[in-house]
Design a protein around this nucleic acid. Structure first.
Lengths: 111, 111
DNA sequence: TTATTATATTGCAATATTACGATAAATAAA
DNA sequence: TTTATTTATCGTAATATTGCAATATAATAA
């Protein structure tokens, strides 16, 4: 079928999965790492940097934008993309809320 | 095409994406949350708990197992699945290594 | 041995994702 | 205005993912 049965899960689970999925592609991670080290960014740079077609990068940028992980501002002919600090912190805390639920002790395997 | 061009990215990026992808489905999160609160687990429980078909759950369990996020031990006729504490800690630190790279200041949007 | 129970695997259909060429849209420069 | 330049969108092909019924496998119980 290929369609996720979202109605079986909680809003939190669906939302977490939606975010995790965005991080689930190396091109999007490469874009984020480029933004992390560049402070500011112009999409064109990424085409040379990543080696993917411009259309492909634009598509990945849109997914990052839809998830609100990045923001884009028009800067003349080009667009300045950067990480959304507020969302970044939010995502970090959502992930840590999960990660911190386990383990209490380092070698806490039940089996 | 549908095929990710892994050769364009670093091993770290590919590995991170591979892990994030596993977290990118609500059923797998639901399984993890069930394991987190149950300490121990038998797959059969999940079929009733999640409302997905047994084959589907088995498939999600395999993906979690392949990513080494969970481990399974044969326990009579059933299998006891639990979270892999070592890997869990490792994943947590990999994610935090990324998340902690930004922002230095809370309102650090460049644009 | 033959059930029974629990989980895994196979095969398939439906949908999603990835990637890219072509083209559109928007702005800046000439 | 016309011409670049930059990014977005459309259409399409290839591959991946999701989900399930049917079946296989493995271990226990009778």
């Amino acid at each position: 079928m290929g369609i996720t049965k979202s109605d079986l899960f909680t809003d939190k689970q669906n939302e977490f999965a939606r975010i995790a999925k965005v991080f689930g592609h190396p091109a999007r991670l490469a874009i984020l790492e480029y933004l992390l080290k560049s402070e500011t960014c112009i999409c064109g740079d990424l085409v040379e940097e990543l080696g993917l077609a411009q259309a492909t990068i634009s598509q990945h940028l849109r997914e990052l934008k839809t998830a609100e992980i990045i923001k884009g501002n028009i800067e003349g002919t080009s667009i300045c993309y950067c990480i959304n600090a507020k969302k970044w912190i939010e995502i970090k805390s959502i992930f840590n809320a999960l990660f911190d639920r386990y383990p209490e002790n380092v070698d806490d395997d039940c089996c």
